[in-house]
Computed example of a mutant assay.
Amino acid sequence: MRTHLDRAITRLQSRLTDALDDERGDVPGWVLITLMTAGLVVVIWALAGPALADLFQQAISRVSGL
């Protein structure tokens, strides 16, 4: 009985150690999410940038009276 329990504990420890040592994660997924987010920021900035710059210039001219 004791050796059976020892083997079971050893197998459990081995599986836990393997699970804890696996730090790869889902790297391709995170890279894809990061690249898509960066792409969205670039597209939104390209579309809204001129309008935001114009809005800023109008606000500054109203405040400063230029």
Rank of each mutant, 00 (worst) to 15 (best):
S64Y: 06
I9M: 11
L55W: 14
D26K: 02
D54M: 12
V27A: 09
L40V: 08
D22Y: 15
I60W: 13
A38M: 11
T34R: 08
L12T: 06
V27D: 02
V27T: 05
A53I: 09
V31H: 03
L66K: 10
V43G: 01
V42H: 00
V27W: 05
T37Q: 08
I33P: 06
L40Q: 02
V41G: 08
R2V: 12
Q58M: 13
A48F: 10
S64E: 06
V31E: 07
A51N: 06
V43D: 00
W45K: 09
R11S: 01
G39P: 00
I33G: 09
G49K: 00
V41Y: 02
A53H: 03
R7E: 05
P28Q: 00
T17I: 09
Q57F: 07
Q13K: 12
A19S: 14
I60C: 04
Q13L: 13
R11N: 06
A19C: 02
L35R: 06
A46F: 03
G65L: 01
M1D: 12
G65W: 02
W30G: 07
A59F: 15
L5Q: 04
M36K: 15
L16N: 15
L55F: 14
H4C: 05
P50N: 11
V41K: 03
P28F: 00
H4K: 14
R62L: 15
R2D: 13
R62A: 15
I33T: 11
R7H: 04
G29W: 03
F56T: 11
G65F: 02
A46C: 00
L66P: 06
A19T: 01
A59H: 12
R2P: 03
S64K: 07
I60Q: 11
A53S: 07
T17S: 13
V41M: 07
A48Q: 06
R11Q: 10
A38G: 11
V63S: 07
M36Y: 08
G25F: 02
D6I: 14
L32F: 06
T34E: 09
R24K: 09
S14K: 02
V63Q: 12
P50V: 10
V43I: 05
L20C: 08
L12S: 04
R24A: 08
I9F: 05
T37S: 15
L40K: 03
S14R: 05
V41D: 01
I9H: 05
R15P: 01
L55K: 13
L40D: 03
L35T: 08
I9G: 04
R62Q: 15
R15E: 13
L5Y: 12
Q57S: 11
G39V: 01
L40H: 03
D18W: 09
A38F: 09
A19F: 13
G65E: 02
S14N: 06
V41N: 09
D21R: 13
V42P: 00
A38V: 11
A46Q: 01
A8Q: 05
I9L: 10
R15C: 03
